[in-house]
Design a protein around this nucleic acid. Structure first.
Lengths: 248, 248
DNA sequence: CCGGGTTAGTGTCATTGCAACAATAAATAT
DNA sequence: ATATTTATTGTTGCAATGACACTAACCCGG
């Protein structure tokens, strides 16, 4: 029942008709304090000319996450970033050519690390503000994008994920801006300060940034902490991070 | 880059070497007030004689969830239950025969619905108490089981999932027992009562169950509510529900 | 019929977390 | 100087929670 059932001798991989497997990677970043997503414009049928989430085939020797990282690097030139598996989309008719099952990943890139590189396989590659992304996207990619956004929102509440979107050094109010952007609601300045200070995940750099008003203290994210008891919670509502099911 | 790149004419599915795709389903239920998981004993190489999580091939025409439900029914005869996608496991060497990618699902069956049916494809099929499950399991199934348990624990905190493990009609203290079992810690009787009563997801049946002491009031789960603002939270700690990443 | 055992269910209260919002601090622009 | 802008800290009241003590309803044995 489990997995394949042949013995070593009788097993023949070509006996079964098999779906194709791709990984698609939803990459978010922050540009001009706004959340952006990376899309590529398709060169060929089907959905020629449509924008799509970058992705590609899983090769036989690499793990799924390796495949996602490889595709990501081929697409953007960025490495060593935050990435996690999102959901696997496998409706029989999501691709008109053949059965294609896509393991979707979800990635965050730092604002100061963008070195976008256009691939030869597509017409164009661009960052879109998530609020102004083209629609519809190719295949079921609208749904994948929506799932990624839900996951992002959900995890912001109880992880330290927001820091992955910021540059090395940042101010508390820049961090607050991210939360507001992604939650789509205003947060109280004072309460935000307190919560962040007390969370113990910020390291003071001693740096100041001059501006129109009082200069801002700049902080660094303490990676050593954070992956522990850390829980933000800004409101009661919970959104599903997975799909049908979860909110988890 | 996204998905396949051939045109209609040049596309040839056999051009690429492809992994095999299976679904594995981790099924939990409650027997004698204890959490159990369904395992099957393998008949053939590899891992002959080892216990494994039930699963099987995805057919070309069916969705992943349909595949999971079909396998589940073939294995247990149970239908119309709670099921959700868990995680996709795809390490290149997780199966010694060939590359096999497994989309794992996570299911809960009601205690009063078990009609276990042994399949012909395996030596045995049995419910194991999760605390006393055989180890190691076949393939990477220990890891899959651990992931499912983490997801279960996590979702109990903010969903109404616990009810899926109970019979139609139950007492509040039975519900409390589930939480205690799965969280592995004692909960306060009084606080539990209040929380459940105020959550607005219980419907009084008027029924009583006689026992040694004072009779218990029996309740029904209000499916109409629940999938809304409903949030239980019994402690601060959060565990990841996915894998590397989540808790979501 | 009375008191102890057992399980079910309610009340009380002090602590904590958090949100609203007011106040102060440190710079720039005119 | 004084207004303006942005940053940071204080105060306060409410609501959720946890610890724990208490009451309720049944059985049973004398």
């Amino acid at each position: 029942m489990t997995d394949l059932e042949e013995t070593a001798e009788t097993y023949d991989p070509s006996r079964y008709e098999r779906p194709s497997i791709t990984v698609d990677v939803v990459i978010f970043t922050l540009i001009d304090r706004e959340l952006h997503v990376l899309l590529v414009r398709r060169k060929r049928w089907p959905y020629e000319g449509y924008w799509a989430i970058p992705g590609g085939f899983v090769q036989m020797h690499e793990s799924l996450e390796d495949a996602a990282r490889r595709e990501l690097e081929e697409e953007t030139g960025v490495r060593d970033i935050y990435i996690e598996q999102l959901y696997t989309f496998g409706d029989p008719d999501r691709d008109p050519r053949t059965r294609v099952i896509s393991v979707a990943y979800f990635a965050l890139v730092r604002a100061d690390r963008q070195r976008l590189r256009v691939s030869e396989e597509s017409l164009d590659v661009r960052w879109f503000p998530v609020r102004a992304a083209p629609s519809p996207l190719a295949f079921d990619h609208d749904r994948i994008l929506a799932t990624a956004l839900a996951r992002l929102r959900s995890k912001l509440e109880y992880t330290t994920l927001a820091f992955e979107l910021l540059p090395e050094v940042f101010s508390i109010l820049e961090l607050k801006h991210i939360y507001e952007q992604i939650f789509g609601e205003k947060l109280d300045k004072g309460n935000f300060y307190r919560k962040m200070r007390d969370a113990g995940v910020l390291e003071e750099t001693g740096l100041l940034r001059e501006g129109r008003g009082r200069p801002t203290r700049l902080y660094r994210f303490r990676r050593d902490r954070g992956d522990g008891q850390f829980v933000f919670r800004w409101r009661e509502a919970r959104v599903d991070t997975g799909e049908s099911q979860e909110r988890g």
